[in-house]
Design a protein around this nucleic acid. Structure first.
Lengths: 183, 183
DNA sequence: AAAGGAGTTCAAGTTTTTTTGAACAACTTG
DNA sequence: CAAGTTGTTCAAAAAAACTTGAACTCCTTT
């Protein structure tokens, strides 16, 4: 009984193959993903969800993209972490289902939060470490040169820290304006 | 005669080993390089040049970093391409010598020019290709869904294109303000 | 024009990253 | 609670990226 229900639902709502333009979009995201330094599979999975109106289960994704369970599981976890996909839980169904986040503002801020901010923090720790090393430097010339470099790096760090909020703001603003056409 | 001159010059101006804080900075750039999706050796080379006041030849770089001729050559080419290092030609010397570009504005705009803009152009080409595929789509439902996706992607493309000039501007502005401390 | 230095190229080797799939854990159902 | 489903983990395999070094080009010097 339940089985019949599930099958009929799948047939009615989820096309079990990719049409040509969907493959093109998936390939587009695959490339984009790599240029952002993320694994290909993240791009593929996101691209697939981006194409579909209905939510997909992990198994749908594995089958449509011909990727392994492991890739699908890890890819979806990373995408959730980035805020690029959201889970949907349908009652009557034990499976978790996924949809793509299509608000650019959310995508960008998730990316900056997960990829940008950690690097800035790590950079701060490294600068502190550098200051410690400079305190121990005996040679005056060298210590002086190191100090000048430390100043430059501190300045860069400050400027990059200031940049991130602006990026979020600029993308966010345009996003809200263009929302009418996509939602 | 010439040999003696060159040797004495090298000894007086270029320390033939790395001090501790220099290694720390080189390591910092090595990591930064990777998080920007660039090869490690680019970061190492840039980091070394960043530390030194005097220009270095390719051979100096190979020796100080213990990297191969090939890496040094390719790394320096990529860094020049990015605008992150500049060549200096000393007369009396056939070797090309290099110095690091330390103006953040230049570094950021070079990076965006070489990494950001090409991706935006490629994206535009892909969008055109996508439109062609959609024109050929027979199924009405599918074509309609594809059209909605194409609209979203076009919007994103527009917004990202607008973002780049802002980033250059924001970093450029702060850079000019903090210039007094580094130059 | 031979010898030598500076720099480039690229096929082969090395390292790093990504993907796979089998084993496992957690839950439901009959 | 045995059997079935969903999803995670991680060691090993595969793929991708990076580095090396020998061969080569182009200059300059003797």
């Amino acid at each position: 009984m339940v089985r019949i229900f599930n099958e009929s639902k799948s047939l009615s709502s989820t096309t079990k193959f990719l049409v040509e333009w969907e493959s093109a979009i998936i390939d587009l995201f695959l490339n984009a993903s790599q240029s952002f330094g993320l694994p290909k599979s993240l791009g593929q999975i996101y691209g697939l969800l981006f194409c579909r109106d209905e939510s997909l289960s992990m198994i749908d994704i594995m089958e449509l993209l011909s990727i392994s369970k492991g890739s699908a599981s890890q890819g979806l976890r990373a995408l959730k972490q980035l805020g690029a996909v959201n889970s949907v839980f349908a009652r009557d169904d034990r499976k978790e289902r996924f949809v793509a986040e299509i608000r650019l503002r959310k995508l960008v801020s998730g990316f900056l939060r997960e990829q940008g901010e950690p690097h800035l923090e790590k950079g701060l720790a490294r600068l502190e470490n550098l200051r410690d090393l400079l305190d121990d430097e005996e040679d005056f010339e060298s210590a002086n040169r190191g100090q000048r470099r430390e100043n430059i790096l501190s300045g860069w760090h400050r400027q990059m820290s200031r940049l991130l909020p602006w990026v979020k703001m600029i993308v966010g603003k345009s996003d809200r304006l263009s929302k009418k056409s996509s939602e």
